[in-house]
Amino acid sequence: MTSRILSGALIAGLAAGLLAAALNLWTLTPLILQAEAFEGPAHSHAGDGTAHDHGAHDHDGAEGLADAGHVHEDASGLSRSFGTIAMTLVAYAGFGLVLGAGMAAAERAGHVPSARTGVLWGLAGFAAVQLAPAVGLPPELPGTVSADLAARQMWWALCAASTATGLAALAFGRGATTPLLGVALILVPHLLGAPQPPSHEGLVPPGLAAAFATRSLGVAVLSWAVLGALTGALSRRAPARVPA
Protein backbone atom coordinates (compact mmCIF):
# COMPACT_ATOMS: atom_id res chain seq x y z
CA MET A 1 0.00 0.00 0.00
CA THR A 2 3.05 2.19 -0.03
CA SER A 3 2.26 3.94 -3.32
CA ARG A 4 -1.32 4.56 -2.20
CA ILE A 5 -0.12 6.25 1.01
CA LEU A 6 2.39 8.39 -0.89
CA SER A 7 0.02 9.54 -3.64
CA GLY A 8 -2.63 10.22 -0.98
CA ALA A 9 -0.09 12.25 0.98
CA LEU A 10 0.62 14.44 -2.04
CA ILE A 11 -3.10 15.12 -2.56
CA ALA A 12 -3.54 15.76 1.18
CA GLY A 13 -0.59 18.15 1.08
CA LEU A 14 -2.11 20.20 -1.72
CA ALA A 15 -5.51 20.30 0.02
CA ALA A 16 -4.02 21.29 3.39
CA GLY A 17 -1.81 23.79 1.56
CA LEU A 18 -4.87 25.45 0.02
CA LEU A 19 -6.45 25.68 3.47
CA ALA A 20 -3.24 27.08 4.99
CA ALA A 21 -2.85 29.60 2.14
CA ALA A 22 -6.42 30.84 2.57
CA LEU A 23 -5.98 31.16 6.36
CA ASN A 24 -2.62 32.88 5.91
CA LEU A 25 -3.99 35.44 3.46
CA TRP A 26 -6.91 36.09 5.80
CA THR A 27 -5.19 36.23 9.19
CA LEU A 28 -1.46 36.82 8.62
CA THR A 29 -0.92 38.86 5.44
CA PRO A 30 -2.74 41.92 6.89
CA LEU A 31 -0.32 41.84 9.85
CA ILE A 32 2.67 41.55 7.49
CA LEU A 33 1.42 44.58 5.55
CA GLN A 34 0.98 46.56 8.76
CA ALA A 35 4.48 45.62 9.88
CA GLU A 36 5.92 46.70 6.53
CA ALA A 37 4.31 50.10 7.04
CA PHE A 38 6.41 50.43 10.19
CA GLU A 39 9.43 49.03 8.42
CA GLY A 40 9.01 51.23 5.32
CA PRO A 41 9.69 54.76 6.68
CA ALA A 42 12.82 53.53 8.42
CA HIS A 43 14.11 52.09 5.16
CA SER A 44 13.62 55.23 3.10
CA HIS A 45 14.98 57.25 6.00
CA ALA A 46 18.19 55.30 5.81
CA GLY A 47 18.19 55.48 2.02
CA ASP A 48 17.77 59.17 1.22
CA GLY A 49 16.54 60.81 4.38
CA THR A 50 16.01 64.29 3.03
CA ALA A 51 13.79 66.59 5.04
CA HIS A 52 11.21 66.59 2.30
CA ASP A 53 11.01 62.82 2.14
CA HIS A 54 10.78 62.59 5.89
CA GLY A 55 7.94 65.08 5.93
CA ALA A 56 6.03 63.13 3.33
CA HIS A 57 6.21 60.04 5.46
CA ASP A 58 5.10 61.89 8.54
CA HIS A 59 2.12 63.04 6.58
CA ASP A 60 0.64 59.59 6.12
CA GLY A 61 2.13 58.30 9.34
CA ALA A 62 -0.37 58.88 12.10
CA GLU A 63 -3.67 57.96 10.53
CA GLY A 64 -2.70 55.59 7.80
CA LEU A 65 0.02 53.12 8.70
CA ALA A 66 -2.17 50.32 7.41
CA ASP A 67 -3.00 52.46 4.38
CA ALA A 68 0.66 52.86 3.58
CA GLY A 69 0.88 49.09 3.53
CA HIS A 70 -2.06 48.90 1.17
CA VAL A 71 -0.52 51.36 -1.25
CA HIS A 72 2.57 49.19 -1.27
CA GLU A 73 0.35 46.18 -1.77
CA ASP A 74 -1.83 47.53 -4.57
CA ALA A 75 1.08 47.81 -6.95
CA SER A 76 1.67 44.06 -6.94
CA GLY A 77 -1.13 42.72 -4.75
CA LEU A 78 -2.35 40.00 -7.08
CA SER A 79 1.04 38.54 -7.94
CA ARG A 80 2.04 38.76 -4.32
CA SER A 81 -1.00 36.78 -3.20
CA PHE A 82 -0.40 34.32 -6.02
CA GLY A 83 3.18 33.83 -4.85
CA THR A 84 1.99 33.20 -1.31
CA ILE A 85 -0.58 30.64 -2.45
CA ALA A 86 1.81 28.84 -4.82
CA MET A 87 4.66 28.63 -2.32
CA THR A 88 2.35 27.54 0.51
CA LEU A 89 1.19 24.71 -1.76
CA VAL A 90 4.82 23.77 -2.46
CA ALA A 91 5.64 23.78 1.26
CA TYR A 92 2.62 21.69 2.26
CA ALA A 93 3.12 19.26 -0.64
CA GLY A 94 6.60 18.76 0.81
CA PHE A 95 5.25 18.37 4.37
CA GLY A 96 2.67 15.88 3.05
CA LEU A 97 5.26 13.76 1.22
CA VAL A 98 7.56 13.57 4.26
CA LEU A 99 4.59 12.79 6.54
CA GLY A 100 3.39 10.15 4.05
CA ALA A 101 6.86 8.63 3.90
CA GLY A 102 6.81 8.34 7.70
CA MET A 103 3.35 6.78 7.69
CA ALA A 104 4.33 4.34 4.93
CA ALA A 105 7.42 3.32 6.89
CA ALA A 106 5.33 2.84 10.04
CA GLU A 107 2.75 0.84 8.10
CA ARG A 108 5.44 -1.67 7.20
CA ALA A 109 6.06 -2.12 10.91
CA GLY A 110 2.37 -2.92 11.37
CA HIS A 111 0.92 0.52 12.20
CA VAL A 112 -1.84 0.77 9.60
CA PRO A 113 -2.73 4.43 9.02
CA SER A 114 -6.26 5.80 9.36
CA ALA A 115 -7.84 9.22 9.62
CA ARG A 116 -7.65 9.00 13.43
CA THR A 117 -4.00 8.05 13.69
CA GLY A 118 -3.40 10.53 10.87
CA VAL A 119 -4.50 13.38 13.14
CA LEU A 120 -1.84 12.29 15.63
CA TRP A 121 0.75 12.19 12.83
CA GLY A 122 -0.32 15.66 11.76
CA LEU A 123 -0.08 17.06 15.29
CA ALA A 124 3.35 15.48 15.67
CA GLY A 125 4.38 17.13 12.40
CA PHE A 126 3.09 20.45 13.73
CA ALA A 127 5.10 19.97 16.91
CA ALA A 128 8.28 19.16 14.96
CA VAL A 129 8.06 21.76 12.20
CA GLN A 130 6.26 24.66 13.86
CA LEU A 131 5.93 24.44 17.63
CA ALA A 132 9.41 23.30 18.64
CA PRO A 133 11.27 25.70 16.30
CA ALA A 134 8.95 28.50 17.50
CA VAL A 135 10.19 27.98 21.06
CA GLY A 136 13.65 29.16 19.99
CA LEU A 137 12.73 31.30 16.98
CA PRO A 138 9.22 32.75 17.40
CA PRO A 139 7.35 33.38 14.14
CA GLU A 140 8.40 36.92 13.32
CA LEU A 141 7.16 39.82 11.23
CA PRO A 142 9.26 41.77 8.73
CA GLY A 143 11.16 44.48 10.60
CA THR A 144 11.98 42.30 13.59
CA VAL A 145 15.59 42.21 14.69
CA SER A 146 17.05 38.71 14.39
CA ALA A 147 20.33 36.80 14.30
CA ASP A 148 22.31 35.66 11.25
CA LEU A 149 20.05 33.99 8.67
CA ALA A 150 22.23 30.94 7.94
CA ALA A 151 22.66 30.20 11.65
CA ARG A 152 18.91 30.40 12.20
CA GLN A 153 18.22 28.14 9.22
CA MET A 154 20.71 25.57 10.53
CA TRP A 155 19.14 25.62 13.99
CA TRP A 156 15.64 25.43 12.52
CA ALA A 157 16.51 22.33 10.46
CA LEU A 158 18.30 20.72 13.38
CA CYS A 159 15.37 21.41 15.72
CA ALA A 160 12.74 20.07 13.29
CA ALA A 161 14.72 16.91 12.49
CA SER A 162 15.66 16.27 16.11
CA THR A 163 12.09 16.79 17.38
CA ALA A 164 10.63 14.56 14.65
CA THR A 165 13.11 11.77 15.44
CA GLY A 166 12.50 12.17 19.17
CA LEU A 167 8.72 11.97 18.75
CA ALA A 168 9.10 8.88 16.56
CA ALA A 169 11.24 7.28 19.26
CA LEU A 170 8.58 8.08 21.87
CA ALA A 171 5.76 6.77 19.69
CA PHE A 172 7.32 3.62 18.25
CA GLY A 173 10.39 2.88 20.37
CA ARG A 174 10.61 -0.36 22.32
CA GLY A 175 12.50 -0.95 25.51
CA ALA A 176 13.24 1.31 28.43
CA THR A 177 15.97 3.48 26.94
CA THR A 178 14.31 4.52 23.66
CA PRO A 179 11.81 6.92 25.29
CA LEU A 180 14.67 8.52 27.21
CA LEU A 181 16.55 8.92 23.94
CA GLY A 182 13.40 10.48 22.46
CA VAL A 183 13.11 13.03 25.26
CA ALA A 184 16.80 13.85 24.92
CA LEU A 185 16.46 14.40 21.16
CA ILE A 186 13.54 16.76 21.73
CA LEU A 187 15.43 18.75 24.37
CA VAL A 188 18.87 18.97 22.73
CA PRO A 189 18.12 21.83 20.27
CA HIS A 190 16.83 23.95 23.14
CA LEU A 191 19.78 23.14 25.36
CA LEU A 192 22.06 24.23 22.51
CA GLY A 193 19.88 27.31 22.16
CA ALA A 194 18.63 29.08 19.05
CA PRO A 195 20.73 31.93 17.61
CA GLN A 196 19.43 35.13 19.18
CA PRO A 197 19.89 38.77 18.16
CA PRO A 198 22.04 41.00 20.41
CA SER A 199 18.85 42.81 21.44
CA HIS A 200 15.15 42.46 20.75
CA GLU A 201 14.57 46.05 19.79
CA GLY A 202 12.53 46.21 16.64
CA LEU A 203 10.32 48.48 14.60
CA VAL A 204 7.23 46.32 15.05
CA PRO A 205 4.91 46.99 18.03
CA PRO A 206 4.92 44.06 20.51
CA GLY A 207 1.17 43.57 20.23
CA LEU A 208 1.40 43.11 16.47
CA ALA A 209 4.29 40.68 16.86
CA ALA A 210 2.40 38.68 19.50
CA ALA A 211 -0.74 38.48 17.35
CA PHE A 212 1.36 37.29 14.41
CA ALA A 213 3.10 34.55 16.40
CA THR A 214 -0.10 33.16 17.92
CA ARG A 215 -2.05 33.30 14.65
CA SER A 216 0.82 31.66 12.77
CA LEU A 217 0.81 28.74 15.22
CA GLY A 218 -3.00 28.58 15.17
CA VAL A 219 -3.14 28.38 11.36
CA ALA A 220 -0.37 25.79 11.42
CA VAL A 221 -1.97 23.45 13.98
CA LEU A 222 -5.23 23.41 12.03
CA SER A 223 -3.53 22.88 8.66
CA TRP A 224 -1.30 20.10 10.00
CA ALA A 225 -4.23 18.30 11.66
CA VAL A 226 -6.11 18.39 8.36
CA LEU A 227 -2.97 17.27 6.51
CA GLY A 228 -2.53 14.25 8.79
CA ALA A 229 -6.21 13.29 8.83
CA LEU A 230 -6.45 13.46 5.03
CA THR A 231 -3.21 11.53 4.53
CA GLY A 232 -4.53 8.82 6.84
CA ALA A 233 -7.97 8.76 5.25
CA LEU A 234 -6.64 8.61 1.68
CA SER A 235 -4.25 5.80 2.56
CA ARG A 236 -7.08 3.41 3.36
CA ARG A 237 -7.24 0.44 1.10
CA ALA A 238 -9.74 0.52 -1.73
CA PRO A 239 -13.09 -0.92 -0.59
CA ALA A 240 -12.36 -4.20 1.15
CA ARG A 241 -13.07 -7.39 -0.73
CA VAL A 242 -16.39 -8.77 0.39
CA PRO A 243 -16.05 -12.44 1.37
CA ALA A 244 -17.95 -14.42 -1.23
Binding site: A20, A21, N24, L28, T29, I32, R80, G83, T84, A86, M87, T88, A91, Q130, P133, A134, L137, P138, P139, E140, L141, P142, S146, L149, R152, Q153, W156, F212, S216, V219, A220
Partner: peptide, 16 residues
Protein backbone atom coordinates in the same frame (compact mmCIF):
# COMPACT_ATOMS: atom_id res chain seq x y z
CA UNK B 1 12.49 34.58 -2.00
CA UNK B 2 10.15 37.33 -3.17
CA UNK B 3 7.39 34.90 -4.15
CA UNK B 4 7.84 32.95 -0.94
CA UNK B 5 8.31 35.95 1.34
CA UNK B 6 4.91 36.19 3.04
CA UNK B 7 4.56 32.42 3.23
CA UNK B 8 8.00 32.10 4.86
CA UNK B 9 6.98 34.53 7.55
CA UNK B 10 3.63 32.77 7.95
CA UNK B 11 5.13 29.29 8.32
CA UNK B 12 7.96 30.79 10.40
CA UNK B 13 10.80 29.58 8.23
CA UNK B 14 13.76 31.80 9.14
CA UNK B 15 13.60 34.75 6.72
CA UNK B 16 15.81 37.83 6.05
Amino acid sequence: HDAAHDQRHAIAFPCH
